[in-house]
Design a protein around this nucleic acid. Structure first.
Lengths: 220, 220
DNA sequence: AACTGTCCGTCGGCTGGCCGACAGTTTGTC
DNA sequence: GACAAACTGTCGGCCAGCCGACGGACAGTT
């Protein structure tokens, strides 16, 4: 699962690496934690750039939600797509109307490659998620999610053990995988019994055999 | 299902409505029927414009394939995403390297909106497909696919009946929906027995009750 | 300590729909 | 018009995993 739930920590805020000219015409805006910023069906289409905080992009069905990605400082997104966007923590971002942005693109071609890269990355993420949903079963998705977390966030300890901070509840993980709390719960406990991993409290995960997880993730 | 398996029918080949300047720098190329044109992991990224014929864009798992879209004359695509692209029938297309195309974009800003629209449409399709896979069951997906075809391609006849050209086999439809031939076949036949629709040969579909289909598509 | 809200583990039932199999039908080709 | 190749309809077996239910563990709060 290539969901970007947990990008690598960077010392500097990547927002400040954005070329100054790009922000011309954007308006600064603050969102409180928990604020729903956009929903499918909104008339206004906007381009947004995150300065600080964290946004969650997700789809909602009858009784389930599926998270597509988490936006972090420096990320650019557009509400063109019919998704919900919600502030997971207090967030500062810069906004511009899609129409106005299109005019900006026409007048300043240097913006184009940035935009292309943004769209390309969104598209690649979406395709990866489609592959997961269409071809992989829940155990494989969970295993891939965990190995991804370990690679991005984990710290290796002695004896091939990895310490992975994990500040998501069972339900949150399930929502990232397009599965349910119960299924994820029983898989995690099964693997704990198998000695593949170990949960420590609610925020920390020890992975004893990353290889086993990789094998599980490659299956099906 | 908003998959663009079937863009709006136009009397003339839509390829010839493409502004002449857009093709500058592209190279004409012919593909035989069945030819695999691109696969994930290819180093070359290309932009392609279809002149005639038909291409299928798809993902492949262990033993199943999922079609993302069928490309028809006038369509533009880019192999940026890790997908397979295959000629379903003999196809003539115009190619350009992504790098070169980026330079073209920079020098001729009028191309940008076209490209943005292409990427935006791909992204919207992908998100819709994710929603379908995550939240909707096969009957709802099929119903939405059919109503989409009717809206885009269909012609209303007398008595609320719609004539919808449909040159896809059962298997093709199933692959667009992430389902199987058997399931789609039995659903279509069930609905035919219910009087909702009627298949005429392999290329034409009559929809007697678009409302029923809409209701089926809204379910789950 | 009792009360309450939130989260986790586990079980059994139920079902959507995948899969294999096979027969029947249409289409294309020589 | 005959033969192959490709497509379609249908059935039954089977299983991943959703869903509801319930009890236990851990906070807080009074």
């Amino acid at each position: 699962m290539e969901i970007d739930a947990c990008p690598p920590a960077t010392a500097a805020n990547p927002f400040h690496q954005i070329p100054a000219g790009l922000l011309d015409g954007f308006v600064r805006h603050d969102l409180a934690r928990g604020c729903l910023f956009a929903a499918p069906g909104d008339v206004r289409n906007q381009v947004l750039i995150i300065e600080s905080g964290r946004l969650r992009v997700y789809l909602a069905g009858e009784s389930r939600e599926l998270s597509l990605s988490f936006l972090e400082p420096g990320d650019i997104y557009t509400t063109h797509t019919p998704t919900y966007v919600e502030a997971v923590s207090a967030t500062t971002l810069w906004l511009m109307d899609t129409r106005a942005f299109a005019r900006k693109l026409a007048s300043d071609p240097s913006v184009t490659p940035v935009m292309m890269r943004v769209l390309g990355r969104l598209l690649a993420n979406a395709v990866n998620l489609i592959e997961d949903l269409a071809f992989r079963e829940v155990p494989a998705r969970l295993a891939r999610f965990l190995t991804g977390m370990a690679e991005r966030r984990g710290r290796p300890l002695d004896g091939g053990i990895w310490l992975v901070p994990l500040d998501l509840g069972t339900e949150d993980i399930a929502s990232l995988l397009g599965s349910t709390r119960q299924t994820v719960s029983s898989l995690l406990n099964q693997w704990e019994r198998d000695g593949i991993l170990q949960r420590q409290g609610r925020r920390v995960l020890y992975i004893h055999s990353l290889d086993s997880l990789r094998r599980l993730g490659a299956e099906a």
